[in-house]
Nucleic acid binder design. Structure first.
Lengths: 227, 227
DNA sequence: GGATTGTAGATTGTCGACAAAATACAGGTG
DNA sequence: CACCTGTATTTTGTCGACAATCTACAATCC
């Protein structure tokens, strides 16, 4: 008998995990003010569950870096500071560079096709000047080569680091970078990834530089916003 | 009035955190067989606490990468495979390289003194052929420049990556063979870190290469052990 | 007025009990 | 004998209640 895998997963997911997903989305969308305490009793009323699954959810959120748990004080939504961003990007730059390098070594036809598809989507979004769509496919493009590295340590760390930048999604919406220029950089990255003769080290530097440049632009953008 | 922050932290530490510390040490020392399930009821009897703090402890252990929690199945001690080590080292190599680079930019007299002290301790341990002592000071040496990077993202990630047990268990045996060589590498790293005119990129490469070489030696050592 | 202390309310920490799911195993069936 | 199937046992998931701690604020003291 055939079964709907997704619904089974959903059934198997404990209450705590479902609440985690809802809270994760809420935090990323900025529905909580930074530094705000998540009161167990309040959330208990909202979700209609006891405190046990809530406390499980808090621990998972802490692992994802979205909240900070202070013993006997409470669970607080993390505020992302300027320094957090400055700390985050250099790490991401090196690890995504490494991911690209390892992905190149393990490249196969399917991954190339997947990357090509997202690249085409980015191209179309850039031509039609649809930033939201562009950044979505841009994010998926990066996810694909990160997964293709098959390095679980890398995949896990970057999952968390990239989630933080999502936190700033609302900022990105108004962040108008030259989409065509960004597309060309990724076209270059794609061509190197798809070329078996390309040099791993060169790919690593290419991706690392791309993120460092994006970081610089982003910081400058934030500074103009803050004034 | 001045207060000892650390002791306050300890008093405030909830049962779950104390249990976490005990279980962390037990896992790192290999007192659980790999893949073994941590049964809540059994640990309940051992520690004389209810299941709530145990479940909290499991979540913290999961965050540290020491166990894996599978919903409705249980909490299992992670087995470290050959692939885990292969995934871990390239990441560590790049991130410790980055940490050294950032530490160099923020170097001050106290940090130089701290590094010098550990380096001297490594020298003495190498001369007296005391691998255990050498490994300890080597680990502290790395911790100092990682902390000196003042990059909290880096510090947190490297704390987890460096925790993994196999490295702890075996490293001092490997270093037995070339303590003096290892000392000279760190003397070189120290001199560059302490020199304000040294090039950041050079330091990054130096530390990265050191870990990659250590990784290669470690893998070869493991292969001889496995046979 | 400013600092200290005491108290009430709010909030997290821990517990034991029950529910739900996974597992182990015995018995049946082809 | 291999394969189901139902049942008993084990184990995790959730709950409500109580204890310990923290917080806010008013009363007190200097």
């Amino acid at each position: 008998m055939l079964l709907d895998i997704d619904s089974i997963e959903f059934q198997n997911a404990a209450l705590g995990e479902k609440i985690t997903d809802i809270l994760t989305e809420a935090i990323l969308e900025g529905k909580f003010s930074g530094g705000q305490q998540l009161i167990e009793q309040d959330l208990q009323k909202i979700f209609g569950v006891s405190r046990s699954p809530l406390r499980e959810a808090f621990r998972i959120l802490e692992k994802r870096g979205l909240v900070r748990i202070i013993p006997r004080k409470g669970t607080f939504v993390k505020t992302i500071t300027h320094k957090d961003i400055e700390d985050n990007f250099p790490v991401r730059a090196r690890l995504e560079g490494l991911a690209a390098s390892e992905a190149h070594s393990k490249m196969n036809e399917k991954t190339v096709d997947d990357l090509k598809f997202e690249l085409e989507s980015m191209k179309h979004a850039a031509q039609r000047i649809e930033p939201k769509s562009f950044w979505h496919h841009h994010s998926v493009f990066h996810n694909i080569f990160i997964e293709a590295s098959e390095n679980q340590v890398l995949i896990d760390i970057l999952y968390n680091l990239r989630m933080h930048s999502l936190w700033y999604q609302f900022s990105y919406k108004y962040y108008q970078e030259d989409l065509n220029r960004a597309y060309k950089i990724h076209l270059n990255i794609f061509q190197k990834l798809a070329d078996p003769d390309a040099d791993n080290q060169e790919i690593e530097h290419l991706v690392r530089n791309h993120i460092e440049v994006a970081f610089g632009n982003f910081l400058r953008y934030l500074e103009t916003q803050e004034k």
